[in-house]
């Protein structure tokens, strides 16, 4: 009994920590979706750029953790902006069919992944030990929390709160929320839509980098690390694509579901549970928890 309870608490902590990393990725996904109405599968690529930028800033140039992280965030944000300008903007200007954007984003993801394979190689890397705190805290009853888990939870929470403040308290944040509702009409308000889309991609890329760094710490760094965004995508769908609170909720649910399955059933069943959850949600609530279902008055 005691064993089960401590496992439960342990796995809840692990689940929240993992879920918070998913949330960083899923929120960026959802943000782009809310403006341009397509699933940006290159998001995984942004995350990988962030991971590698952090790795090389730490190991090759010897910067400290804070500077390396800031550099990684910037690199990832700029990659996202560049991707939008080079791959999506030309399509957006020619057609309103978002399927083409989705296909292009898959292509970009493959390009980024393979750029890393051919330049730095496909081998698995780990961020240097000294980069992040490695301590483990004993909470009693056999429950332990690693410092990196706490760090990722705290950092994710800080970034999500900052994003929320940006969206609700600033002029451009309001413009983004208006554009999520109706991009064309936001343009009529005098919002420079091209700049706004760039800004959204920059923010999404930046958040992906934070996720990428913590995933590199939790697991390891390799060119295909971006494939983990499938999970964030599922989280975003569960929460309701385009909804930011939905993306966070979906991510936490997913993180908890994975870790509880790992703790009480088997680690190998994690993905089965995740995908079953997705199918179930799509059957019961196709728009997710906070998806757009309410019809607007015309």
């Amino acid at each position: 009994m005691n064993f089960t309870l401590s496992t439960l608490i342990q796995q809840i902590i692990n689940g929240l920590s993992l879920g918070s990393v998913y949330a960083l990725i899923a929120v960026g996904y959802s943000l782009v979706y809310s403006i341009l109405l397509f699933s940006n599968f290159a998001h995984g690529g942004f995350l990988v750029v962030g991971g590698y930028a952090c790795y090389f800033l730490l190991t090759q140039w010897g910067f400290n953790t804070a500077v390396s992280m800031a550099g990684a965030l910037a690199a990832s944000g700029l990659t996202a902006v560049l991707t939008e300008r080079l791959a999506y903007k030309p399509i957006r200007e020619r057609t309103s069919i978002t399927l083409y954007l989705l296909i292009a984003s898959m292509g970009v993801n493959i390009v980024i992944e393979n750029l890393f394979v051919i330049t730095v190689g496909g081998r698995i890397r780990a961020l240097p030990q000294s980069t992040f705190p490695t301590g483990v805290f004993e909470l009693g009853g056999g429950v332990t929390v690693s410092a990196s888990d706490i760090l990722s939870l705290v950092v994710a929470a800080i970034f999500l709160v900052l994003l929320q403040l940006f969206l609700t308290r600033t002029r451009w944040g309001l413009a983004i929320r208006a554009a999520a509702c109706d991009l064309r009409t936001a343009g009529l308000m005098g919002v420079n839509v091209t700049f706004l889309i760039g800004l959204v991609f920059f923010v999404a890329g930046l958040l992906a980098a934070v996720g990428g760094i913590f995933l590199s710490v939790r697991y390891s760094l390799y060119p295909q690390l971006g494939s983990i965004t499938t999970k964030a995508f599922i989280a975003a769908v569960i929460g309701g694509l385009g909804s930011l609170p939905g993306a966070v909720l979906g991510s936490l649910i997913l993180g908890l579901a994975e870790m509880l399955t790992a703790g009480f059933v088997s680690s190998q069943m994690r993905d089965l549970v995740v995908y079953s959850l997705l199918v179930l949600i799509l059957l019961v609530r196709p728009a997710g928890f906070f998806g757009r279902t309410a019809s607007e008055k015309i």
């Binding site: 002029r171 309001l174 929320r177 208006a178 009529l188 308000m189």
Partner: peptide, 22 residues
Amino acid sequence: PEGRRVFAPLTVEENLRIGAFT
């Protein structure tokens, strides 16, 4: 615009505020 196109999920106040964006 035709069909009014107010930002339905935003409040009346926010709709006015975005009108003053420039």
